Amino acid sequence: MTVLTKTPQEIDHMDEREVAELAARLELDDYPTPFEALQDWHLLRAIAFQRQELVEPYWHLLDIEAYDES
């Protein structure tokens, strides 16, 4: 299995097309192993922290809920 990692600088240079391809893979959920799906999920999450505007259409894939700390 090839591990796909992106540095913060690489995430900075990602475009909408690349994020859409990543989201499409997650939507299809057709991975040989669960670890590969988790890897893509973590990448999408990293992009969300650094470039939220690119991930907004795919927020549902992250399954992140707002927390009320009060």
Score class of each variant (00 low, 15 high):
Met1Ala: 03
Thr2Glu: 15
Val3Asn: 01
Thr5Phe: 01
Lys6Asp: 09
Lys6Phe: 12
Thr7Phe: 11
Pro8His: 04
Pro8Cys: 11
Pro8Gln: 08
Gln9Pro: 09
Gln9Met: 14
Glu10Trp: 11
Glu10Gly: 10
Glu10Pro: 13
Ile11Tyr: 04
Ile11Asn: 06
His13Thr: 11
Asp15Trp: 09
Asp15Glu: 14
Asp15Pro: 10
Asp15Thr: 13
Glu16Cys: 05
Glu16Met: 07
Glu18His: 03
Glu18Gly: 06
Ala20Cys: 07
Ala20Met: 10
Leu22Thr: 00
Leu22Gly: 01
Leu22Asp: 01
Ala23Lys: 00
Ala23Val: 01
Ala23Thr: 03
Ala24Ser: 10
Leu26Trp: 10
Leu26Ile: 12
Leu26Cys: 10
Glu27Lys: 06
Glu27Leu: 06
Glu27Phe: 06
Asp29Met: 08
Asp29Leu: 07
Asp30Tyr: 02
Tyr31Asp: 03
Pro34Gly: 04
Pro34Lys: 01
Phe35Asp: 00
Phe35Ala: 03
Glu36Cys: 02
Ala37Asp: 00
Leu38Met: 03
Gln39Phe: 02
Asp40His: 05
Asp40Gln: 07
Trp41Lys: 11
Trp41His: 14
His42Tyr: 06
His42Leu: 08
Leu43Asp: 01
Leu43Tyr: 00
Leu43Arg: 03
Leu43Cys: 04
Leu44Phe: 00
Leu44Trp: 00
Leu44Thr: 00
Arg45Gln: 08
Arg45Lys: 10
Arg45Leu: 07
Ala46Pro: 02
Ala46Arg: 05
Ala46Gly: 10
Ile47Pro: 02
Ile47Glu: 04
Ala48Glu: 01
Phe49Glu: 08
Phe49Cys: 05
Phe49Met: 07
Gln50Cys: 08
Arg51Tyr: 06
Gln52Leu: 11
Gln52Asn: 11
Gln52Trp: 08
Gln52Thr: 11
Glu53Ser: 09
Glu53Ala: 10
Glu53Pro: 09
Glu53Asp: 14
Leu54Ser: 09
Leu54Asn: 09
Leu54Pro: 08
Val55His: 14
Glu56Lys: 12
Glu56Gly: 13
Glu56Arg: 15
Pro57Met: 15
Tyr58Asn: 13
Tyr58Trp: 15
Tyr58Arg: 15
Trp59Arg: 14
His60Lys: 14
His60Ser: 15
His60Arg: 13
Leu61Asn: 13
Leu61Glu: 14
Leu62Trp: 12
Leu62Val: 13
Leu62Phe: 14
Asp63Leu: 08
Asp63Arg: 12
Ile64Tyr: 10
Ile64Pro: 07
Glu65Cys: 03
Ala66Lys: 03
Ala66Ile: 02
Ala66Pro: 00
Ala66Cys: 00
Ala66Asn: 03
Tyr67Trp: 06
Tyr67Lys: 10
Asp68His: 04
Asp68Gly: 01
Glu69Trp: 11
Glu69Gly: 12
Ser70Trp: 15
